[in-house]
Deep mutational scan, measured.
Amino acid sequence: MLDDRARMEAAKKEKVEQILAEFQLQEEDLKKVMRRMQKEMDRGLRLETHEEASVKMLPTYVRSTPEGSEVGDFLSLDLGGTNFRVMLVKVGEGEEGQWSVKTKHQMYSIPEDAMTGTAEMLFDYISECISDFLDKHQMKHKKLPLGFTFSFPVRHEDIDKGILLNWTKGFKASGAEGNNVVGLLRDAIKRRGDFEMDVVAMVNDTVATMISCYYEDHQCEVGMIVGTGCNACYMEEMQNVELVEGDEGRMCVNTEWGAFGDSGELDEFLLEYDRLVDESSANPGQQLYEKLIGGKYMGELVRLVLLRLVDENLLFHGEASEQLRTRGAFETRFVSQVESDTGDRKQIYNILSTLGLRPSTTDCDIVRRACESVSTRAAHMCSAGLAGVINRMRESRSEDVMRITVGVDGSVYKLHPSFKERFHASVRRLTPSCEITFIESEEGSGRGAALVSAVACKKACMLGQ
């Protein structure tokens, strides 16, 4: 009897593995994704193909990295998701002549009506938060230079001027797309009239992360975010950046690689679950690469896999709870928690219980395998993109072996128990001629924006502006 049951459990697990095998990517698959990513990057950089390229390769006008001589107080704003952060950054000489960066910050959550109302409502709310922060720190009387981390696709015309191309991540505030974001912020500050600010720089969160990590390690020339969304930036040779005049030196390019796949480059790798996630998203047909990796989508992918296993009578005796059938019910943090389970399955059992399920031991094991399959594919897909960037940098610099540091931020990278190990191992397999160091950014977005502002202020002083 026991043997029969054991055989049935083994057969069930084997069927589960057959279904989950769809998520496995072979090294040849990853090399294919990497080569296609490089081709799209090239198209994004070139003037004649930029418009139709899915990977936009947006110039950021960040050319210099901090040298350690900029000092002063800077205000930093960070808008990239449902939370908005205001930070005071003091850049100065530390002990023994070292450079020191001290920060104080406060988080504000953005109400739904500000995210989806008008641009005026959104930026009025942001300036209200700045006003509140300055009151708390008794700094209303000071006109501070301000660095703005704005983590949406922007076409820069200068370091302090950028046109919002399109909202992502659930934002829909009308009247912002096609307009200068810094102008919208300046107008809102003017409307309030109770404080003055000098907006000197606007950067993407990947750029802010790279600059913040450069402060720790001067070989950091790539910034990457794996959180709600997924994106990367890197220092490109100016001669390859056709959208900006000049051939000397390097400029940081914001790849906006989340949109890779929007022209069909990933079609052969998309599964039924991916198509369902895409169809029910706020932007169907867009940001397809990001939807395979980002935390906004990972939990939902797992939920759809679990429903398939229920329908195949391989999980929960073929019956799903009402909660499990509800879109968004299986949160991405559950994926991390399930994979963090120590082996007694308590954590998995508790999560499934909150979803109205009474799982068996085998159910718990199957749910864990589903989570591992989805998150491992995410790590491997992400590795193909980064390997594409790094191999490109090595080739354009004609280096036999390139040493490089990548600064990384984002909740999936930082909080998932195995993502970074799987990701690092896969990147290294795909970049055999590179020695890569990964560092995690601390308060990256805010500190990085302030350091970019410090560079901009120093330049302005040198130019006598």
Rank of each mutant, 00 (worst) to 15 (best):
D124L: 05
Y125V: 10
P59V: 03
Q98R: 11
G249F: 05
A188E: 01
M115S: 10
N83F: 10
S100C: 07
K142W: 12
H156Y: 14
H218R: 06
M107Q: 11
N166C: 13
V335C: 08
D217S: 03
G328D: 11
R46A: 14
G97R: 05
C220Y: 02
R422N: 13
L184G: 09
N83D: 09
F74P: 00
V222S: 01
V241E: 01
M34V: 05
R428L: 14
H380Y: 11
G258C: 15
Q239Y: 08
D135F: 06
P145R: 00
S383W: 00
F150I: 11
V389R: 00
I348A: 03
K458W: 10
E216T: 07
G249E: 02
T49P: 06
L304C: 11
Y289V: 15
M34R: 05
A387T: 09
H218C: 06
G147Y: 00
K169S: 13
L184S: 11
T362W: 12
V199D: 04
A10G: 11
L306E: 00
G294T: 15
G92C: 11
G264N: 04
K296L: 14
V427T: 08
T354H: 11
Q26Y: 11
S340Q: 03
G117N: 01
Y297L: 15
S127E: 05
P66W: 05
R447K: 08
R63W: 00
C213F: 09
C364M: 02
Q286H: 12
M139V: 09
M393C: 14
Y214C: 05
T405M: 02
W99V: 07
G229T: 15
S263L: 08
V33A: 03
L315W: 03
R392V: 12
T326Q: 14
L271Q: 00
T65P: 00
K12V: 15
L58S: 13
A53T: 10
G343R: 01
L144E: 02
A329E: 15
T65K: 04
R325M: 09
L185Y: 02
C364I: 09
Q323I: 13
M462W: 12
I351N: 04
I159S: 12
S360H: 01
G261N: 06
K102L: 07
V101C: 05
V62C: 08
G295N: 13
E312R: 06
N180V: 08
S69M: 11
